[in-house]
Structure formats: structure tokens, C-alpha cells
Design a protein around this nucleic acid. Structure first.
Length: 281
DNA sequence: CGGTTACCCTGGATGC
DNA sequence: TGCATCCAGGGTAACC
């Protein structure tokens, strides 16, 4: 569920509650989510440790622990999220962070259990794990680097933008928004984009993601909420996602909702007029 | 090697 | 009301 703007909103919400606090107790409620460490290990490292930083890398949440206790990395994936709000214990709790002063609990919940929780012995180890499996963060990548990476594959531009090894942070919602804003058809081969299109795309990525962060992300149905349980406001102002059949804000024509190659079951929304299918099939 | 597709897991919405 | 079916914002492993 969460993409870069939602994870950034989580991190900003977690910081004031966690940074500088001592974790009185860290509890793994569902070892299924663990990757490369045991529940005992991560509970022992986290228990009594002071949180020194909470940061985002792509769609990862990185919680740094002081006193050489390493870093906890949480990937919310589709349905993971953090909760600060008492008094009731939320559903599907997978990890809980017990704090002492003030006495409260921060929960990580994940209905579908697709999320991942890992522990690394040092901050550098966590950083290296990110660099191994993910490309540059979508808000940091340079126009030249983006152009170079896109030039190396003939896959469709949308599945390429969603490939975290190319760049980290963009998922199904923001891929549709970014491609609409840059007027590029989602099935265009990534390597076929022109220099002009690279520039439009890079600008759109920064603009759309920052606008979504300002709105605290995208909520619909019973999905993503901020750490305080509030809905993100981006879907009130977005152009494409979830608006199949409705008028395109650019030309007034109907927005197409469809499925495209390279993305198994995921819906794709685009405007066939504003995002013309140049040189496809 | 590069690209595409099963599949992971579960809950909520929808349809009969 | 009950049950079957489909859908979902992510990511990997295996396949062609």
C-alpha cells in the first residue's frame, strides 16, 4: 500500500514520538515477517535501546538504535502501517515498541503479512542492504542517472518506474500520476524516451511526490492512514488513479482503466489522448 | 540475459 | 444472510 509519500509521512509522524526515546520493550508478535534474524535477537537488541534516528530509504523505514544496537528496517509493503494512537490496541499488530516516558506503545500493523522486518548490526550494514537491492531514491536521483537507467531496458516505462532496482519509491498510484503529468504512455518502451521526455519525467517525479507528501499521502477505503489515524489527502487532487471512465483534467476525454504487460494484476490509468501510444506494437 | 508471469498472504467489497 | 469471487497501493522466485 504505501509508496514513497506514505512512507515519508509515516517517518515524519514517528520521529517526534520515537527519536530520543528509550525502547523499554520491543516485541515481535509475528515472526513470519522477520528476515535474516530471530525474534529473540531483535527483541534483545531493541529492548533498552535508545532510538537515535528514524529515516526513509525508498519505501523502507529505518530505525537507528544507539549504543551499537544496530538498525531495524521495516518494509510496510502493501498493508503495513504504524499507529501512535491509544487507547485501544489496533488489529493485526506485528511489532510493538513499548516506551517508558511518556508511557505509550507504537505499533506496526500489517493485515496481509506481506511486510518485512529486519535487523542489521550497524547503520552501515542497513545502508549497504538498501544499496544492494534498491536503486537511488526517487527524490534524490539526478536527471542524467534516471535517463541512463531508463535507456538500458525495453520494458514498458510504467513497470520500469515501479522497479525498485531502477529507482526506489514509486508504486502503482504514483507511476500513473507521474506518467500523466509528463504526458507519456505507460507502455512506451523505457529506452525509447527522448531527452525532452526524460526531463519532463524527472520533473514530474519530484513534483508529484512532493505534492503527495504535502497532502500526507493517498488514502482510500480502509487502506493507508497516517500514524495518527488520519486519511492522506492526495486522492482528492490526483488526476488518474481510481478515476477510470472520468474526464481527463487535460482534455476532458475519458480516462482509460486497463491492465498492461509487465504488471500482473495491477490496474493502470491513463489518458489515450494526452498520453499518445507512439511507436507501440 | 532480459522480460513476463505465478505466487506470497489476508481482508474488504461485490455479486449471486 | 451466506457463500463464492474478485480486488488490492508490493516484491520475489521461477519460468520462457
Amino acid at each position: 500500500m504505501p509508496e514513497l509519500p506514505e512512507v515519508e509521512t509515516m517517518v515524519r509522524g514517528l520521529r517526534p514520538a520515537l527519536v530520543g526515546q528509550t525502547l523499554h520493550r520491543l516485541t515481535i508478535h509475528d515472526p513470519f515477517l522477520l528476515q535474516g534474524c530471530t525474534a529473540e535477537e531483535i527483541e534483545r537488541q531493541g529492548g533498552g535501546a535508545k532510538v537515535t534516528a528514524v529515516d526513509r530509504r525508498g519505501k523502507w523505514v529505518v530505525i537507528a538504535l544507539g549504543g551499537c544496537r544496530g538498525s531495524i528496517v521495516i518494509q510496510p509493503r502493501m498493508t503495513g502501517g504504524f499507529w501512535l494512537v491509544p487507547p485501544d490496541r489496533p488489529q493485526h499488530v506485528r511489532v510493538s515498541f513499548g516506551l517508558k516516558r511518556p508511557e505509550r506503545t507504537v505499533w506496526f500493523c500489517d493485515a496481509r503479512r506481506l511486510g518485512k522486518v529486519a535487523w542489521y548490526a550497524t547503520v552501515d550494514d542497513a545502508e549497504a542492504a538498501f544499496a544492494r537491492s534498491q536503486g537511488p531514491d526517487a527524490l534524490i536521483i539526478t536527471p542524467d542517472d534516471l535517463a541512463l537507467r531508463l535507456s538500458k531496458t525495453s520494458r514498458g516505462i510504467k513497470p520500469t518506474l515501479m522497479d525498485q532496482k531502477i529507482l526506489a519509491g514509486i508504486g502503482n498510484i504514483y507511476a500513473d500520476e507521474v506518467l500523466f503529468q509528463s504526458r507519456i504512455h505507460p507502455e512506451r518502451p523505457a529506452s525509447s524516451l527522448t531527452a525532452e521526455e526524460h526531463n519532463r519525467l524527472h520533473a514530474a517525479i519530484g513534483e508529484v511526490l512532493n505534492r503527495a507528501i504535502a497532502a500526507e499521502g493517498s488514502s482510500f477505503d480502509a487502506g493507508y492512514r497516517t500514524v495518527l489515524g488520519l486519511e492522506g489527502g492526495f486522492l482528492a487532487q490526483n488526476a488518474m488513479y481510481g478515476r477510470g471512465g472520468k474526464p481527463c483534467p487535460g482534455c476532458g476525454g475519458a480516462i482509460l482503466k486497463t491492465k498492461i504487460a509487465g504488471l500482473i494484476g495491477r490496474p493502470t490509468h491513463y489518458c489515450p489522448t494526452c498520453q499518445p501510444a507512439i511507436g507501440i506494437r
